Amino acid sequence: MTMLIVTHEVRFARDVAGRVVFMDGGMVLEDTTSQPFFGEQSSERVRQFLNLIEI
Rank of each mutant, 00 (worst) to 15 (best):
Arg45Cys: 03
Met1Arg: 14
Asn51Ala: 15
Ile5Gln: 03
Thr33Asp: 12
Gln41Lys: 05
Thr2Gly: 10
Met1Glu: 01
Gly18Val: 03
Ser42Gln: 07
Met23Gly: 04
Glu9Tyr: 13
Met27Asn: 09
Met23Cys: 06
Val20Cys: 13
Gln35Arg: 12
Arg14Gly: 05
Arg11Leu: 10
Thr32Tyr: 02
Ile5Arg: 00
Arg47Glu: 09
Val20Ala: 07
Thr7Leu: 08
Thr2Ala: 05
Ile5Asn: 03
Arg45Asp: 07
Gly26Ser: 02
Ala13Asn: 04
Val21Gln: 02
Glu44Asn: 04
Leu29Cys: 04
Ile5Trp: 03
Glu40Ile: 05
Gly39Thr: 09
Val28Arg: 10
Arg11Asp: 14
Glu54Asn: 12
Asn51Arg: 11
Phe12His: 08
Ser42Ile: 02
Gln41Glu: 09
Arg47Met: 09
Gly39Pro: 01
Asn51Cys: 09
Ile5Met: 11
Ser42Ala: 05
Ser43Lys: 07
Val46Met: 13
Asp24Ser: 13
Val20Glu: 09
Ala17Val: 05
Ser43Val: 00
Met23His: 10
Gly25Cys: 06
Val20Lys: 08
Val10Thr: 13
Glu30Tyr: 04
Val6His: 07
Met23Leu: 14
Leu50Asp: 05
Leu29Asp: 06
Ile5Cys: 11
Gln41Asn: 05
Arg45Ala: 06
Pro36Lys: 00
Thr7Val: 05
Gln41Pro: 05
Phe37Leu: 10
Glu44Ser: 03
Phe12Thr: 01
Thr2Gln: 08
Glu44Gly: 01
Asp24Asn: 15
Val28Met: 09
Asp31Gly: 05
Glu44Leu: 08
Gly26Met: 07
Phe49Cys: 14
Glu54Tyr: 10
Gln41Ile: 01
Leu29Met: 11
Arg14Trp: 04
His8Tyr: 01
Leu52His: 13
Gln41Asp: 03
Phe38Met: 03
Ser34His: 09
Met23Thr: 08
Thr33Val: 01
Val6Glu: 02
Gln35Ala: 11
Gln35Leu: 12
Glu30Val: 15
Ile55Gly: 07
Phe22Ala: 05
Glu40Cys: 03
Met3Trp: 11
Ile53His: 07
Leu50Lys: 04
Gly26Arg: 08
Val20Ile: 15
Arg14Phe: 01
Thr32Arg: 09
Gly25Phe: 08
Asn51Pro: 03
Val28Asp: 13
Met23Trp: 00
Arg19Lys: 15
Glu9Met: 06
Phe49His: 07
Val46Asp: 00
Phe49Leu: 01
Arg19Leu: 11
Thr32Cys: 13
Ser42Cys: 02
Arg45Gly: 03
Ile55Ala: 06
Ile5Thr: 14
Asp15Asn: 15
Ala13Met: 12
Leu29Lys: 11
Val21His: 06
Leu52Gly: 12
